[in-house]
Structure formats: C-alpha cells, structure tokens
C-alpha cells in the first residue's frame, strides 16, 4: 500500500561529482524498478521525487537506496542530512517497468542510471540476459555498475549497432528528455519495444494536482497522463513529445 513513511538515513555518501547515494531504513515492504519515492525536503512546498536504485527487504524493515545529483534547494537540503536523520517519504509511487523475459538493453543517461541499477539486479536474479549502457558528461561524474560506460559523447552513439549485434528484444531507458526521445524514435524504427522512465517536476506525486502530465496516444485517443501516477514508465510509440 502507498503510504507516508518515516524512515531513517542509514548511509549518505558522495559517490561522484555533485552526486550522492542515500540509503533509507524504513518499513516499506516492496518496490519495483522505476518506482519512486517522494521526499519532504525541510519546509519546501513541493516534495522531491527520486527513483529507487536499490531495494533490499529485511525481516521487518527494508533498505531503500536513491541516487541524486545536486540541482537546487531540495537536493542541497538532502545532501546536508546525516546518518540517523529522519526522512519523510511517500512510497512506493508510480508503476515500475514491466519486466519481460527478453534480451534487454538498459540505457541510463546521467543520473538516469538510478532505476537501471535496480532493474539490472532484478533481471539478473531472474536470469534474463541484459546489457546496461550508461553515459556521463565527465570522468568524475561516473556512477559505477554498467556493462559499458560512455564518457563525453552521447550514450546513443552506435546504439543501433549494439542493438543489432546483441539481438536486443526490449529496451528500457531513463535519462533526460532528449535521450528518451531518441530511444523512442530508434525503438519505432527498429520495431524493438521500449519502456521509458520519465522525469517531471511534481507537486503531489500521487496523481491529484495534474502538475506533471504528458500527452499520450493510447487506444487511438490523445489524453493526459500523469507521470507520477500513470507513469513514470511509458511505452515507446505512445508519447507525444512537447
């Protein structure tokens, strides 16, 4: 059940340039890759959404890991928290990836690698063949865990060849809009299905305020869908990019 959780920070660590890993101990019982949590950041009006990058269930409690990049006041607030500090978060939010037993390519651009690390772990546990490619602007921004890391250039460079070479049957992607749009177009071109995890500024994060909607073509109808509740995962071919 979705709930307002009070967790405790188990670990907060600077893992790359302006990039942090936070592990939260709480009684959250389940989470799927691409689902997210929405954290109350001090007195900020809007909670901040973070994709879950790992989830480890213990007997009564669990450890939820998020990765975040310093972006503004919300993330600055989080960065300054210490082990043992309380975290107020709503979870587990949104719909995760629909995992299929297909040879999978995972694309994580920048901090978009977060849900891909969780997904990779799940696919490995299910013995589903997968390949994770990530991309970062600079060497000092690299977040580890990929099968291939692109530095400087675009994560999309030579990706078509990679898809063909590895006989990829399903693409999962997360990252900036420009990358997701490219994945969407490529997936249509190659007729390879894709699942894209989107990010958008949110206020309520539970589908009420309609602040984070995007337009989709579903069932031959153009309609608004909220990234927080109906997403954050949408299928290649259905998104109308603004």
């Amino acid at each position: 059940m979705k709930k307002d959780y009070k967790g405790k920070i188990e670990l907060i660590e600077n893992i790359a340039l302006d990039t942090y890993k936070m592990v939260i101990l709480s009684d959250l019982r389940w989470a799927n890759p691409a689902q997210f949590i929405s954290i109350l950041c001090g007195n900020k009006t809007m909670r901040r959404p973070f994709s879950i990058s790992d989830f480890e269930k213990k007997e009564k409690e669990s450890l939820t890991t998020i990765l975040f990049k310093l972006k503004g006041e919300g993330t600055s607030y989080l960065k300054n928290l210490k082990k043992g500090d309380e975290i107020d978060f709503l979870a587990p939010l949104g719909n995760g990836f629909k995992i299929e037993n297909k040879k999978s390519l995972l694309i994580g651009a920048g901090i978009g690698i977060a849900p891909m690390l969780f997904l990779k772990k799940e696919l490995n546990e299910k013995n589903i063949e997968n390949f994770l490619i990530s991309g970062f602007k600079n060497e000092n921004e690299i977040i580890k865990g990929s099968d291939k890391t692109v530095i400087g250039g675009s994560v999309m460079d030579n990706i078509e060849e990679l898809i063909k070479e590895k006989n990829i049957e399903l693409i999962y992607a997360c990252g900036p809009k420009v990358v997701l749009k490219m994945v969407d177009e490529l997936s249509t071109k190659l007729n390879t299905p894709s699942q894209l995890a989107l990010e958008k500024v949110m206020a309520c994060s539970i589908g009420v305020c309609r602040g984070c909607v995007i337009k989709l073509i579903r069932n031959n109808k153009i309609q608004n869908y909220s990234v927080c509740k109906d997403g954050p995962v949408f299928f290649g071919g259905e998104i109308i990019w603004e």
């Binding site: 007195n43 900020k44 009006t45 809007m46 500024v201 949110m202 206020a203 305020c209 309609r210 602040g211 984070c212 909607v213 337009k215 309609q223 608004n224 603004e242």
Partner: peptide, 23 residues
C-alpha cells in the same frame, strides 16, 4: 478539458505557482 501545455507548476519561496488550466 485537457488543461495547459508546457510547465504547469513552479515552486517559489513559501509556496508554488500553478497553471494547470482547469484540466
């Protein structure tokens, strides 16, 4: 109504601005 296109919410000090557009 589908409401407004583009950015619909914006956080400010002590509050927020919305332009949902009566979706």
């Amino acid at each position: 109504r589908l409401g407004n296109d583009g950015d619909r919410i914006f956080e400010v000090q002590g509050g927020m601005i919305n332009r949902i557009g009566l979706e």
